[in-house]
Design a protein around this nucleic acid. Sequence first.
DNA 1: ATATCATGCAACCTTAAGGTTGCACTTATA
DNA 2: TATAAGTGCAACCTTAAGGTTGCATGATAT
Lengths: 114, 114
Amino acid sequence: MSKTSRSGSTDGDVEDLFFALGDRHRLSVVRTLRARGALSATMLADDAIVTRQAIVKHLRILERAGLVSHQRRGREVLYALEARRLDEARTFLDGISAGWDRAITRLRRLVEEP
Amino acid sequence: MSKTSRSGSTDGDVEDLFFALGDRHRLSVVRTLRARGALSATMLADDAIVTRQAIVKHLRILERAGLVSHQRRGREVLYALEARRLDEARTFLDGISAGWDRAITRLRRLVEEP
DNA sequence: ATATCATGCAACCTTAAGGTTGCACTTATA
DNA sequence: TATAAGTGCAACCTTAAGGTTGCATGATAT
C-alpha cells in the first residue's frame, strides 16, 4: 500500500489542512472560490485588502493542504476549490467527537468524587 | 440578537477553531483527551515531547477556540474536550463544500472554452 | 507545621508566518 | 511589433507562534 492509509490522510496532512483553514484571509479565499468558482490570484486580490503576492502565498498554503488546485488558462492561472479535502476534514472531526461521551463521563466521575 | 449568529459561530470564532487544530501538538492533545478523558497539563506533558509550559500554552489556545474547558480539582486543573465546538467546525465545512458542484462546473466551463 | 506536588507567572529566545516592494518574464492584443 | 496585462521570483521587514528556564504561589498529605 502507498503512504496514504485507507482513510486517505496522514497526520501531517490533517495538520496542514487545519492550518490552512486557520487564517482569516485564507478562509475568505475559500469562501470566494466557493461562491464565484475558479479565479486567478489577481482577481482574488482585487476583493482583498492585501497584495496579490500575499494572496499567492495563501494559495500555495491552500494548495499544499490539498484544498485548491490550479490550472493555467492562457496567461492567467485559475485556482479552484478541491472539495474532497473538505470532506476529509469533516471525517477527521467525526473521529474526534466519537469519543466525546466517554470523555465527559470520565471527567464527571473524576470531578464528582469526594 | 446577540453577537452570535444563528449558526452559533462568528468568523473570528471559525478562524480560532481551525487555527487551534492546525498544530501537531494541539492535535495530539485533542486526541489524548478524546482517548483518556480529562487530564491535567502535567499529565499531558508526561506523554509529550515538549514542556508542561508549552502544553499549557496549547491548552489556552484550545480553550480560546472553545475546544476544551478546564475545571479545578483540588490542586490540579483538569482539561476536557468540548465536543459541541467540533460539531460547529463540521457544520462550517458542510457550508463550504455545499457550493462545490457549482464551482467545479464553472471551472470546467472556463478551462474548456476555446 | 512542613515537605511535596502542581499550577501560575514572567523573562527570554528562535524561527516561521504574513506581508510588502521591485523587477524580470510570458502571453495576449491593439 | 509594441504595449499592456498577468504571473514568477527574490529580497526584505515585522511580529507573533512556539518553546524554554527559573522562581513564586497555592494546595495536599504526612
